[in-house]
Structures are given as C-alpha cells and as structure tokens.
Computed example of a mutant assay.
Amino acid sequence: MAYYGKLKVMWDELVNCEPISTCRFGGCKCSITAKLEKKREENRVRQFLMGFDDVIYRIIHSNILSINSLSSLNRVYAIIIQEELHREIDQDSEERGDVVGFATQANYGARVVAATARPNDKIVICTNCGKPGHEVNECFKITGYPYSWRDGP
C-alpha cells in the first residue's frame, strides 16, 4: 500500500506537469484523448508491477501481463492486495503451526499438564515445587535432575 501510494503521488505530479493533449479540431471523432489516457494507464500498470520482487511475485506478475488488454490500475492493485493478504494468512498459519509444535515439545515430558488435560482427568500437582505434571516422589528438586537436564528445565 505504501509503494502504491508513493507511485500515485508521483503519477499525479506528472499529470500536472504533462497533461494529455486534446484534439484542437472541433467535432473531431478521433478520440485521441481516450487512447492516450488508456496508454498512460497501461504504462502505470507496468511501472507498478516492475517494482515487485520477481522471486515472490513472478507468477502473479506474468498472469497479469499475459492478459491481452491490461486491466485497469485499480484492478491490478486489488489483485496484488489480495495476494498479499493470502501470503499473510499463509505465513500466520505456518507460524502458528511452529508454535503448536514447540508447545508439544515443551509438554512432552509431563504426564498430566493443566493445559492439555481433558475434563475428566485428575490434574496432579507436586506438593514440593507446586508445578503440575508430577507427584512429590518424582520431583527433580528432590530426586535430582537427569544428566541431560544440566541447566534445569
């Protein structure tokens, strides 16, 4: 959005500096102004698409450019925004998957943990350290930490 905003400001300034010429002949039916405006719009679409990373946006870039008559700039912008939203959703779901994986690894050694307990399970809490997942006779603070647990949990 920021990139499009910067381009839009520059394009607006260019329109002020270089307005599209109109036909000087009264009653002319050549529609040169509409043709020049369409050409300017196509150039803007190309400029807009050229600013994106080829590695990430190669497919969407080629799909848009493969259309015989280029879409309007607003339509191309909407397509890119939609693609960005899909990428964000995909990235968020991947990150959530990693977090769930880490949580599973963290709870691996516990027998019964409050966060993973089912409603009918009894939550066991150590009377020595007050942490869930073990009883006092299995508390590492009493029995000692395993060799692999050098620096504590």
Rank of each mutant, 00 (worst) to 15 (best):
N63S: 10
A34W: 01
D92Q: 14
R75C: 08
R24W: 07
Y147N: 07
C129N: 04
G27K: 12
N120G: 01
E135M: 14
Y77W: 10
F48E: 04
N120K: 07
N43Y: 05
I79P: 02
L14G: 10
S69L: 04
T33R: 15
S71E: 14
K122T: 14
G27Y: 03
D151A: 09
K122F: 05
S69H: 09
K141T: 11
R46P: 00
M10L: 14
G130W: 02
F25D: 10
S69D: 12
E42R: 13
D151Q: 06
N43V: 01
I81K: 11
N120Q: 08
V100L: 12
A103N: 14
D53R: 11
N68D: 12
Y77M: 08
H134R: 04
C23Y: 03
I81Q: 14
S93G: 00
E84K: 15
D53I: 01
Y3I: 06
V99H: 06
V9T: 14
K141M: 07
S66D: 10
G101N: 13
V99C: 04
I64G: 01
D98A: 05
T104F: 01
R40L: 13
A110D: 14
R118F: 07
Y3H: 09
P119A: 12
M10N: 09
S66C: 08
Q47P: 00
V124D: 07
I123E: 04
R24S: 15
F48A: 07
V45E: 03
T143S: 07
N74S: 15
P19F: 01
S66P: 00
G133W: 04
G152Y: 03
D92R: 13
I67Y: 11
D151I: 02
P19Q: 05
D151G: 14
D151R: 13
V55G: 06
G5M: 05
K39P: 00
C126W: 03
P19I: 03
I79S: 11
R96C: 11
I64Y: 00
V76L: 10
F52T: 03
A2G: 05
Y4R: 13
G130C: 02
I79A: 09
R150W: 09
Q82P: 00
I79L: 13
N68Q: 15
E138I: 01
Y147G: 06
E88Q: 13
N120H: 07
K35H: 07
E41N: 11
Q105L: 15
A106H: 04
K8A: 12
F48Y: 15
G26Q: 13
A114L: 06
I60R: 04
G101A: 12
K39Q: 14
K131V: 09
D90R: 10
A117H: 08
N63M: 06
N128F: 13
C28N: 02
T127M: 08
I80H: 02
I81C: 09
K122P: 06
F52P: 01
K8M: 07
C126E: 03
C23Q: 01
F140A: 07
C126D: 01
K141A: 10
D90I: 04
L85P: 00
Y145E: 05
V9W: 00
N128R: 10
G51L: 02
C17A: 12
E18V: 02
K6P: 00
S93R: 13
V45Y: 00
A110M: 15
